[in-house]
Design a protein around this nucleic acid. Structure first.
Lengths: 104, 104
DNA sequence: ACATACGTAACCTATATGGTTACAATCAGC
DNA sequence: GCTGATTGTAACCATATAGGTTACGTATGT
């Protein structure tokens, strides 16, 4: 398991650099293709929006990928944010190892 | 990539069957350990709640796992739900293959 | 100058998360 | 049978998010 050292790439970046730009597609066009508003797509591309499961399915249809590709990117991004935005979770005390890893 | 045929296991099930029950921990105790309300944990265990990134971090601390373990379970569950709750995303037209997979 | 594309604010609606409190139901032990 | 512990959940609250429409200022290309 890899521990993320720096902020993971936001899915919006991949969409823009690996799809829209190479394909010369405008955001307006792409939003129409995806069946969402320009605002929704624009927010994702500018890292202010989230790839929801529904959006992942739409992207997977349009780009012939798995929906997991997009959800994994979003998941890693969200996890990194949660890890760094609050440290509250660090106060959770691990259950005793002998309790967890006993093979009785 | 595996296509899910049936509803993926909800993370709450795993928590209950693989952790709480074997360890004889009550929900009330576990909620306290995790630093969340009993309601929040109970909802997850009964498949009416979501493992958020923050909750995944708490679970990973308590159970000595990766947070990804829990987020992946939740992601697969959510994806399956989205796939089956609405079929809207199926109306997205795939971009032409020659457009997508040209190596120019 | 004009049309196109873009980011985003403002506004609205629907939904989700998580906390507290309270209540009814279940179950174990005495 | 009584008691206490545990649980699911409703009711209520505050906050946040997703997504839509409309409109505006700005930038860019022709």
């Amino acid at each position: 398991m890899k521990k993320m050292k720096r902020q993971p790439t936001h899915p919006g970046n991949i969409i823009k650099k690996d799809y829209l730009e190479p394909l010369s597609l405008t955001i307006t066009e792409m939003a129409t293709t995806l069946g969402v508003s320009r605002k929704t797509l624009s927010k994702i591309l500018n890292e202010r929006g989230t790839v929801t499961p529904d959006m992942a399915l739409r992207l997977s249809r349009a780009f012939d990928t798995t929906p997991d590709l997009w959800l994994n990117l979003q998941k890693n991004y969200d996890l990194w944010q949660a890890e760094h935005s609050s440290k509250e979770w660090l106060r959770v005390k691990p259950l005793a190892k002998q309790l967890l890893h006993s093979n009785i």
